[in-house]
Write a protein that binds this DNA or RNA. Sequence first.
DNA 1: TCAATTACTGACACATATGTCATTAATTAT
DNA 2: ATAATTAATGACATATGTGTCAGTAATTGA
Lengths: 210, 210
Amino acid sequence: MKKTEASHRRRKEARPGEIIVAAFQEFDEKGFGQTTLANIAARAGISRTTIYLYFETKEAIFEAAIRDRIERTIDEAAQSVHAPHGDFRTIFTQVITLIYDRLVLSDASVILKVLIAEGRTIPDMVSFYRNEILRKGERTIEALIQRGIATGELNQDCADFDVRVFVAPAIMSAIWRRVFDDIDPLDVDQFKQSHVRLVCDALLGRHEPA
Amino acid sequence: MKKTEASHRRRKEARPGEIIVAAFQEFDEKGFGQTTLANIAARAGISRTTIYLYFETKEAIFEAAIRDRIERTIDEAAQSVHAPHGDFRTIFTQVITLIYDRLVLSDASVILKVLIAEGRTIPDMVSFYRNEILRKGERTIEALIQRGIATGELNQDCADFDVRVFVAPAIMSAIWRRVFDDIDPLDVDQFKQSHVRLVCDALLGRHEPA
DNA sequence: TCAATTACTGACACATATGTCATTAATTAT
DNA sequence: ATAATTAATGACATATGTGTCAGTAATTGA
């Protein structure tokens, strides 16, 4: 009467994805160094050695997990970006909201966490993340500033800022949630409002021109 | 003619400090999980088993290293804080400069890095850091804002901000330097200027009142 | 100078993780 | 049905790290 054990099924196509998901969760909880293939296998519900059928090494899994997540984030972000219209504050709020949704509030921040932790040992991944994710975010903000200057909403000297200060609170809150949230939860929505207000007040002036 | 091997000397008092320094460097390079007692011992120029004479476990070393560094940072910071006088921008610049000197430009940011990486496994250290370091920074900024409101330099609604946004760029740059500096060095001084200007412009208004 | 003390070390036993390989068993084709 | 294939596994060999302990050697005191 007993059916075949589900755990012994052969599912060649599904395995890599399952392994990546399991690995991602393990990396989140334990970090790269502390994660073992046995942990990943147990979580994925397969034997440890099965992993070797799909990945060469632990590093390869890590790389695949990161690439997978990064690509997903980029795709999702690409879908969300509309042709921007509206004043600076409106568009900036949209962009920042996107960042909070895709980074701070999602588990994509695990990537950031792991890169911070193990960056020295995986410089290629660090470069990849810096170029594919962070750089794109910076470019978006830069373009937004330029647009604001062009329309006259922003003063010329707004271009003098290092654009990273405009995103820094989002980065910090992403990390905060991963590190301190258990002992001191962050109200993300309220923090985001402070963030937007800080930047807009600084760039537009406190008493907005008519 | 040959003197006694320096590596075999008995120096009970100096050892713990040497071990802590060596461990700190290893944690920086490899993270907590990847650091082995053998690595620490080699760097400290002693035998691995000697470590057991002074520390119970690797965690104990880490804790000692963190406490040591945190206490040093607090002491140094306490010395540097003078009775504040001057306008908001002046004092704020002083405080931010202190943070950059003690966190961003020093190797104290290694602590932050390790906490981000291994926080889940050492919640006590996370609480300690959050309460002893971060909280104190927040209090300082809060007091500064209140003072500004009292003197009339700042508008009442400046108190509505989550104070962490005022420090976020410093936190981000501390991490940046640990992760991305090899491929994309950060000009800390320039970034700090952007930071100060962002906050002051937002709080004081762009066109400063006389 | 020689014994007592103890910081320090190397060798050992144990534990855990990695990677390989022959075997088992689910699937597919004939 | 039954053979061929190949996904999946358990057992094995290797490597690395931890912690203990008896012995060594530097220091101290009589």
